[in-house]
Design a protein around this nucleic acid. Sequence first.
DNA 1: GTCAAACTTTGGATTATGTCTAAATCCGAA
DNA 2: TTCGGATTTAGACATAATCCAAAGTTTGAC
Lengths: 140, 140
Amino acid sequence: MSPDLITRLKEAGIQPSAQRLAVAGYVLQTDAHPSADEVMSEVQANFPMLSRATVYNTLNLFVEKGLLRQLVLAEGKTVFDPCLEPHHHFIDEESGRIEDVPWDAVKVGDVKGLKGYEVHEYMVVMRGRKLGGSRMSKKR
Amino acid sequence: MSPDLITRLKEAGIQPSAQRLAVAGYVLQTDAHPSADEVMSEVQANFPMLSRATVYNTLNLFVEKGLLRQLVLAEGKTVFDPCLEPHHHFIDEESGRIEDVPWDAVKVGDVKGLKGYEVHEYMVVMRGRKLGGSRMSKKR
DNA sequence: GTCAAACTTTGGATTATGTCTAAATCCGAA
DNA sequence: TTCGGATTTAGACATAATCCAAAGTTTGAC
Ligand SMILES: [Mn+2]
Ligand SMILES: [Mn+2]
Ligand SMILES: [Zn+2]
Ligand SMILES: [Zn+2]
C-alpha cells in the first residue's frame, strides 16, 4: 500500500515483505500500545496469511532496527510503542489502557545529574483514572 | 523469630503461619527487588518446607494486604518491593538490578494537576549505568 | 479435651507469553 | 530460468504464573 511505509522499512534496512508491511501498517501507525497478541489479531483481520512466529519476528526486528520501542509497564505482557520521541505514560487502572503523555506536560528535574548514576533514558509512569469518559474512543 | 514480623502480619490481617513468616522475614526486609523465584530460592535456603504455590500465594497476599508493592519494570518478571513510601526506580541496563531513588532526589512537576487524568500514583523510571562499580554490593 | 469447620499448604496440571528449530516458501539477481 | 539467501511457518520448547483438588493444620465452639 503506502509507499511511505515501504520507504521507511527500506531506510531502516528492512526488506519490505508482504507480512512485514501488513504488520507495519498497523503497529507503526497506531496510537495505542498493543501487545504482540493484539498486533496479530488486528493485522490478521485484513491479512490472514500471518503466523504467530512472524508477528514476533517482525516486532523484534522493528525494535532492533529502531522503528518501535518495547515497553514493559504492566503485568504479563510487553507492548510496542511506535512513538520514538521521549514521552511519559499514563496507565488507566480500570482498563489497563496505556496513553502517551507529552514530554513537556510534566516537568522533571535534574535527572541526568543524579549523583552516582549515568541515566540514559527516563520517563514518568503514572497510574490512575482517565477523566471525561464520555467520548468513547474505540481502537485505531 | 522476630515478634515484630508476627505483629506486622497480624496488623495487616494475615495469619502468621510458619511459611508466611519465613517469606516475610526475607521479602519484607530486603532492599533488593526480588522476583518470586528469587524469593523462593532465598527463603528455601533456611526454610525448605516451602512450595512454589505457597510463595506465589504469600506474595500475592502481601500485595493485597498492602505489605508489598508489585512492580513490572523489566521483561519477563514482576518483582516485589517492600518499600511502601513513594520513590523512584533506577534500572541498571547491564545487570538488570533495580535500585530505589529517594522521592526527593528527583523533582517532578504538577503531575496530579494533569488535565484529563486523575493520577493516583506515579514514579520516575530511569535506565542507565550505575557508576562507581568499585564496592561490589552482594545480595542481602 | 474433642471435633468439625475454616484456613493453609502442596504437587501437579493448566494457561499464557515468548523463543527456537528445521523445513517449506518466496524472491531478486545473475 | 535458476540459484541461493532471506523470509515465513507449524509446532516444539521454555518459562512465569495461576488453578485445582487433596492433604495438612489451626481454631474455636462445645
Ligand atoms: Mn505512542
Ligand atoms: Mn525498596
Ligand atoms: Zn508511548
Ligand atoms: Zn523500590
